[in-house]
Structure formats: C-alpha cells, structure tokens
C-alpha cells in the first residue's frame, strides 16, 4: 500500500494485467510514442497523459502498439482482436473523439454478443480521458459517458479516485464484455492510498463515501470530490448526507441509490454533463419511478447547462458545477 496518483494507479494496473495475461495488449495513438522518429527513443512518451508510461519498454512493440490517427480503425481493431480471444486495452485519448469512432463502438463492438445469439465474447476495454477543467473548449472537454450509458451492450466505468481506478480497470480487463473506461482528466494527479497488489472492484457496486440522514447525494467522476467538499462543509450546520458514487453508470447500482433515498427522502444528483438525457435526469427518473412515496422534496439535478463547454476560464468555471452550487442545492432541499 502506498500513495499513488490516479495516473500511476492506472499505469500499475496495466503493467500487472499485461504481466499476468499474455492476451492483454494496448493500442492507440502515442501509447508508446516516438515511433519512426529520428531520436530513436521509441516508448519515451507513454500516451499524451502519460498513463501508459514505461509499458513499451517492458512489453515491447507487439504489446504496446502505436497507431496512425484513425480512431475508427483503433476501436475496430480492438473489437476484432477481442472477438478472436485477445484482451485489448485501446486508448482513444480525449473522450470527445468518440464522435469519430461511434459506429465501431455502438453498432459493432456493443452489439456482437446480443446479435450473435450470445455466442461471442468481446473482452475489449476502451480508455478515454473525459471531462472539463482545462479550458480545452467544446471538442476536448466533454464527459461522453452519459451518452454511452444509453447503449445496451456496453459497460461504462467512471472512477473517481486512484484506488477505484486500479480495481475497476483490472475488473474491466477480466470482463468478457466491452467496457468503456472514462478517466476524468482533472483527477489524474489526485492521490490516495492504493494497494500494490492486484485487486478488482465489481461493476454495479456503488461506493458510499459519506453517511447521513438528511439528503442523498449521487455524484459521478470529477464531481465526487466536489460533493465531498460540499457535504463536509455542511456538517457544521448540522446537515448530514449520504454520498453515493455509483462508479459504473452501466451497470448502475439502483439498489444502493433507492435504499438511501428511501431513508433520506431527498435526492441531489451531480454530474458535469449537460442536463438532457444525462445521468442526473436518469437517476432523477429512477427515484421518481421507484421511490416516489419516500420523497419529501423535489429531486434536484446539479449539472452543466445545456451548452457546449466554453473556452474562457471564467465561463468554464461557471459551466462546471461548483462546490457552492452543490451546497446551496442541498440546503435548498432542507429549507
């Protein structure tokens, strides 16, 4: 056990999974880096976020594969290799680039098992860096996981800390179905205690991060830390909240959310994506449908407005839900 960043925890999971299972390989743009370059330093980059650092040096060119800029072909190649028994982990860099390879994810990889009558496996993992916070504007800041959650046939994972990232990624690699793994890029440098050995966290099991009586707060990804800060600050005002991080949006731990809402009677759902057809609306609908009689107040969504992510730092700060917004929404329910 030692303190690790989320970046290092994911990197460690990849190293360990590759050492344990020869069918695991990684593929993507610059996951090694410097291929064909005059410096000869192949492998020096390890992904534009440094998450695959050192993997080329340890596992070589057959298992750490750089590609041209061709996201459809990257996802397709991962899906195809998985169909014939490999366990690829592809990196698509920014989650926004799903726009380029949507067909291979949604119509191909995500449908094989069902359309082939349950006779195929597609154990591919696709990793993405998601979310805002870098003034990266409309094409490099989206979370995208809320969109992908809508498609049956895909599992969708959103770790909110280094510990979960490692355990969930190891689970994703072992899983026989396609898994989309969203790494909130604002959290890459965040540190927590992470075991050195391998461990897995099952999908569909929420984490309870705070326990309280007044309000249930459900938060995803980058929003989890902000929800923690909001809830902790309210403690001195005598307000106590349950905080649930579902960790996987598909499968979703509906039971954990409903049980908590039945106890508190109040629900705030927090995500950094826009409101329509997103996770906050989805979970609000779950409560309305299945916990209606327990509700003492309207269900509140704290999310981005219905707009693309703006570039300007001030605008982006207003766009992504803040600790203050989460706090005032919780208080509003108790007023």
């Amino acid at each position: 056990m030692s303190e690790k960043t989320m970046r290092d925890a994911i990197n460690e999971a990849l190293h360990q999974a590759m050492a344990e299972d020869e069918s695991v390989f990684i593929i993507g743009e610059d996951v090694a880096g410097c291929n064909g370059a005059p410096s000869g330093k192949v492998g020096e980059v390890g992904g534009v976020f440094g998450v695959t650092s050192g993997i080329y040096k340890e596992f070589g060119p057959d298992r750490c594969i750089d590609t041209p800029i061709s996201e459809s072909a990257i996802v397709g190649a991962a899906a195809g290799a998985a169909l014939v028994g490999m366990r690829p982990v592809a990196e698509i860099m920014f989650a926004d680039f799903i726009g380029v390879c949507m067909d291979q994810i949604v119509n191909q990889m995500g449908k094989f098992r069902y359309m082939f009558g349950g006779k195929s496996k597609c154990p591919a993992v696709i990793r993405f860096a998601s979310g805002g916070g870098f003034s990266a504007a409309g094409q490099h800041s989206q979370s995208m996981y809320q969109v992908m959650t809508a498609f049956p046939g895909l599992k969708v994972v959103i770790p909110a800390n280094a510990y979960d990232a490692k355990g969930l990624l190891l689970q994703a690699i072992k899983d026989d179905d396609p898994v989309l793994f969203f790494e909130p890029k604002a959290l890459y440098q965040e540190v927590c205690e992470v075991p050195d050995e391998m461990y897995t966290i099952p999908f569909g099991e929420a984490a309870f991060l705070r326990e309280g009586d007044d309000v249930t707060v459900v938060a995803f990804g980058q929003m989890v830390n902000r929800a923690v800060a909001a809830i902790d600050a309210l403690e001195s005002e005598g307000v106590s909240c349950d905080l649930i991080d579902p960790r996987t949006s598909s499968p979703l731990d509906e039971g954990a959310i409903l049980e908590s809402v039945e106890a508190t009677g109040r629900l705030v759902v927090v995500d950094e994506s826009p409101p329509r057809c997103g996770l906050t609306a989805d979970i609000a609908a779950l409560a309305a449908d299945r916990a209606f009689h327990s509700l003492k107040a309207p269900v509140k969504q704290v999310c981005a407005p219905h707009s693309p992510t703006p570039f300007s730092p001030e605008l982006e700060a207003a766009y992504i839900p803040s600790v203050e917004r989460i706090q005032s929404t919780i208080k509003q329910l108790l007023a």
Partner: peptide, 19 residues
C-alpha cells in the same frame, strides 16, 4: 472585457433551467 457567467448559455438556440 471578460465574459460573464450568463454568457455561457448564449448562442445555443435552446436553454433549459435546472435546479
């Protein structure tokens, strides 16, 4: 001039209130 928060929602044809 620096942009102000209400400008986030301009130029997007449709807006929805939340919260």
């Amino acid at each position: 001039a620096r942009p102000t928060p209400e400008q986030v929602g301009n130029d997007v044809y449709i807006s929805y209130g939340t919260g």
